[in-house]
């Protein structure tokens, strides 16, 4: 029977063995990162005031439903409790969805993109793309002038405020290191590098972001959907003053 199902959806960092299995099973599938905001209409399944990333996941799943082969769904410490609940909701709604836990550290590798001279937005886009498509790039390491700590923001445009000499820390760095549940690496920063600690509003990682910002005299920001002018101005001021 002919099928038009050609999409594999995922969020977070599914276990590499699971990624490899589905790459081999469906070599021509299109991989789509459900964490990202593609501008779909909110399906009103989650509360209005809730993590935009988790809302993206639900909205993506419903939008792509007819074309989905499977959803690979991290539910462990490599993602968050909200990822686990999102998995349960989508399973209950009848999606073909596979839970994934990627908490081991034995695959850990050095980071290159996080400390490169690429624009910050490009760095983070390459790191997240690298989850399902390895990035073999010639890249140059640069000394950090600033740091960006956190998950990829829902509004990626905020990253364009930073100079190219910005290193990536937090969960995004853990993803590049193939250790998304490595809490020590997630909490690691370079003490002399002025760092912006970012959290998505309504995300439990705000705990870490606020604590680390206070501890290391950085700037804590949280953003909901899109960055407001004031949020952008606050970051600009921090970058100019530090």
């Amino acid at each position: 029977m002919r099928t038009n199902k050609n999409i594999i959806g995922f969020w977070g960092y599914p276990h590499p063995d699971l990624l490899e299995k589905y790459k081999q099973l469906y070599p021509n599938a299109q991989w789509i990162d459900f964490d990202i905001d593609y501008g779909f209409t909110d399906q009103n399944i989650l509360p209005e005031s809730y993590c935009s990333i988790i809302k993206n996941i639900i909205n993506c799943a419903i939008n792509y439903k007819e074309n989905l082969i499977v959803i690979l769904a991290p539910i462990g410490k490599d993602k968050c409790d909200s990822g686990w609940f999102a998995y349960e909701i989508l399973k209950d709604m009848g999606f073909n969805i596979i839970p994934s836990t990627f908490e081991e550290k034995n695959r850990k590798r050095d980071v290159k993109i996080s400390v490169s001279d690429l624009p910050l937005r490009k760095k983070i886009e390459l790191i997240t793309k690298g989850i399902y498509a390895p990035q073999n790039l010639e890249i140059k390491t640069v000394k950090a002038k600033f740091g960006f700590w956190g998950v990829p923001p829902n509004d990626l445009s905020v990253l364009e405020l930073f100079p190219d000499e910005t290193h990536v820390y937090g969960w995004t760095r853990c993803v590049e290191a193939m250790a998304p549940a490595d809490i020590e690496l997630e909490m690691y920063i370079d003490k002399d590098v002025p760092t912006v600690f970012y959290s998505q509003s309504f995300c439990s990682k705000a705990q870490l972001a606020k604590y680390l910002a206070d501890k290391h005299n950085g700037l804590y920001i949280d953003m909901d959907d899109k960055a407001t002018n004031s949020t952008k101005a606050k970051i600009e001021a921090f970058l100019r003053l530090r």
Partner: peptide, 17 residues
């Protein structure tokens, strides 16, 4: 708000909404 210590900028915040 902005805070200064030892004559140097130390910290800022902006409660924007």
């Amino acid at each position: 708000r902005a805070m200064f210590k030892n004559g140097k900028f130390k910290d800022l915040d902006w409660n924007s909404s």
